[in-house]
Nucleic acid binder design. Structure first.
Length: 612
RNA sequence: CGGGGUGUAGCGCAGCCUGGUAGCGCAUCGGCUUUGGGAGCCGAGGGUCGGAGGUUCGAAUCCUCUCGCCCCGACCA
């Protein structure tokens, strides 16, 4: 046997003191000596020159949204494949900051941290029924024994399985388990970098209660915890009422970071606290105002005019005078939906109004076949299809709609006279400026948002399917009610950038910044500057400050540009003109602070700022 | 999934139409000068031109297939 096969223990150096071995492994991290006085914590110094922070001068051409561009340019992440990224040292520090806040607040709220497997057996998903339901977003594969597996996009099944095995008594309740785990969802089209990747870091929590009242308490606790988390992250956000989707019934809120680049539309009232996502948002129904006299219905030729816009222009009337007829298919057959020309169909509302779980928009050919006329000319008059109309068309008089005849529309159509009054329901997206349904006088405002959190009362969907039961006080078996609570940890990093940047780069909120302070040594060849900087960072370390030390032998301009790009909130400059006068310069990234300080008092000034 | 685009050095791109020694800028390495907002000069290294097959004396270039990536769309008729 060669020396390679000696017992492992003999190859481990003696005295593997953590501090010294860590220094050897990563010379760029300086672990400071123990704090100089009680109450002080240990800081961190990272040497720019010894750390992989690959900043880019030019914008990566593929990146469209600001956070994606800046995360690549600032050297926080690098792509590996579609929607999958490596987190580099600086980016990882930010991710860890978010994690730490989430973890602290979850622990504070009484949740217990666990770590569940990323790879899950297909059987479990078959048990819940989601193996078939979940679709292509679920990444499935087989192991060497041909067992079906999936990479967890979420963990309801796993946690339900754990709880049904381990929790037997109501006395062990309520319980809330959370984890911070890598998830994978095989998105149709991953985009926007970290904002909508396929692999992402998520905090998911699951509460278990004996009854609905218990769930209400757990839910409320999480709701408040989420507000604390996003506040601590320094984000402008909004909690909105959300649609509960196919599970139905139970309540749900989404937390959105407000940003113009957000993919979601949320609606809020400018007077009361009402806020909801677009799928769910409702406006107060207003009866039509002025009543015009009824005019004679007539056919009007509209050759080749197939869109609402085109017909409106052709007839020289506003789109709000048109009624558009949308054909949808349900399990119970096709239905003709009527909306005002300037309104947009809300599929979720329509499905609810029709009491069906699935609504599909047929392909044009199929729609034409079902309606007996091409799509641009469909209309309710004389149609033999069941009709459901949006409330907003109820008050219309003398409106225009398709004539069910290619190339023709009907003008001056009126309810009751030209066609029977159909059933009405709320089928559309609200429009900015509409009156609030919850208060008097409020107006609805639309915002773009990035969904970073979602709390959901699951009820017994999974506990029923998987048999999660305990004995209650009477010794009777009870099925537990569950809540689930997610936070997109990695997405928060991107969302924070979407909300905090300028033309020069990122401007981190204090709580998420990878470092509290960037210390720039203007000229690392000047021994005096280096000595002064070293004295400063040793002192900062002892006071528990996280410092990025830009000790690179680069020109001043390069360091300034990179500092702007990286977005660390405070910058302390040692060197150059001011140094010759015994001064250092302290600046904030936001630009609201720029002052010269005597080297001797710099430390206390920095500490005062960081403390504030 | 449908439509479009693109793939040439680490990054950004030209070359392709019209086949004939693979180029530019930035970055990297060395030298000199410079040094407070992405320096200058000189020199150097670095490329299976996404992959496979084909046409041709000869393919980054033409043809076929394939893979990756990006964009748009997947309610607004």
């Amino acid at each position: 046997m060669s020396a390679r096969w000696r017992p492992i223990s003999k190859r481990i150096p003696a005295s593997p003191c953590l501090r010294s071995s860590r220094k050897i492994l990563n010379p760029s991290i300086t672990i400071p000596p123990m704090p100089s006085y009680p109450g002080a914590t240990r800081g961190v110094v990272m040497h720019f020159s010894k750390t992989l922070i690959p900043t880019l001068k030019e914008d990566p051409v593929d990146a469209q949204v600001i956070s994606h561009r800046l995360m690549l340019r600032a050297g926080l992440i690098r792509p590996l494949g579609a929607g999958i990224y490596t987190w580099l040292p600086l980016g990882l520090r930010v991710l860890r900051k978010v994690e730490a806040i989430v973890r602290q607040e979850m622990d504070q709220a009484g949740a217990q941290e666990v770590l569940m497997p990323a790879v899950q057996p297909g059987e479990l998903w078959q048990e819940s029924g989601r193996w078939e339901q979940y679709g292509k977003e679920l990444l499935r594969f087989v192991d060497r024994h041909d067992r079906q597996c999936c990479f967890g996009p979420t963990h309801e099944e796993v946690i339900a399985d754990l709880v049904r095995r381990e929790i037997r008594s109501y006395r062990q309740l309520p319980a809330n388990f959370y984890q911070i785990q890598t998830k994978f969802r095989d998105e149709i089209r991953p985009r926007f970098g970290i904002m909508r990747g396929r692999e992402f870091l998520m905090k998911d929590a699951y509460s278990f209660d004996l009854d609905q009242a218990g769930l209400d308490v757990s839910y409320q606790t999480m709701f408040e915890t989420y507000q604390r988390i996003f506040n601590r992250c320094g984000l402008a956000f909004r909690a909105v009422e959300a649609d509960t989707g196919s599970i139905g019934g139970a309540s749900s809120h989404e937390f959105h970071v407000l940003a113009d680049s957000g993919e979601d539309v949320i609606v809020s009232c400018d007077q009361c606290g009402y806020a909801a996502n677009l799928e769910k948002a409702v406006a107060a129904h207003v009866e039509a105002g002025a009543v015009e006299s009824l005019e004679e219905m007539q056919r009007v030729a509209t050759p080749g005019q197939k869109s609402i816009e085109a017909v409106a222009q052709f007839l020289k009337i506003p789109t709000s005078r048109l009624v558009k007829s949308l054909l949808v298919e349900t399990a119970a057959g096709p239905v003709l939906l009527l909306l005002r020309g300037d309104h947009a169909l809300n599929l979720v509302k329509a499905a609810a109004a029709l009491a069906v779980s699935q609504l599909t928009i047929p392909e044009p050919e199929r729609a034409a076949q079902l309606a007996g006329v091409e799509m641009g000319s469909m209309g309710p008059v004389g149609s033999r299809l069941p009709i459901l109309a949006d409330q907003a068309v109820q008050g219309l008089r003398n409106f225009v709609c398709g004539a069910n005849e290619s190339g023709w529309h009907l003008q001056h159509v009126n309810w009751g006279r030209d066609l029977p009054l159909p059933a009405f329901a709320d089928l559309r997206n609200v429009v900015a400026g509409e009156p609030c349904a919850r208060c008097a006088g409020g107006r609805l405002v639309r915002h773009q948002g990035i969904e970073v959190g979602h709390v959901f009362k699951l009820g017994d969907k999974y506990s029923q399917a998987l048999g999660v039961r305990v004995l209650d006080r009477q010794g009777l078996e009870q099925t537990l009610v569950m809540g689930c609570y997610g936070i997109g940890v990695s997405r928060i990093v991107a969302a924070a950038i979407e909300q905090n940047y300028d033309q020069n780069g990122i401007i981190w909120p204090k709580a998420l910044a990878p470092f509290q302070l960037e210390l720039i040594v203007l000229n690392p060849r000047e021994a005096q500057e280096v000595a002064a900087a070293e004295g400063l960072y040793q002192a900062l370390l002892a006071d528990g400050v996280e410092v990025l030390l830009d000790d690179r032998d680069e020109r001043a301009g390069v360091k300034f540009k990179d500092a702007d790009l990286l977005g660390i909130p405070l910058r302390l400059l040692v060197g150059g003109r001011s140094f010759k006068e015994g001064m250092v310069e302290l600046q904030s990234r936001r630009g609201d602070l720029s002052e010269r300080l005597p080297l001797a008092t710099a430390l206390s000034s920095v500490m005062a700022l960081l403390g504030s």
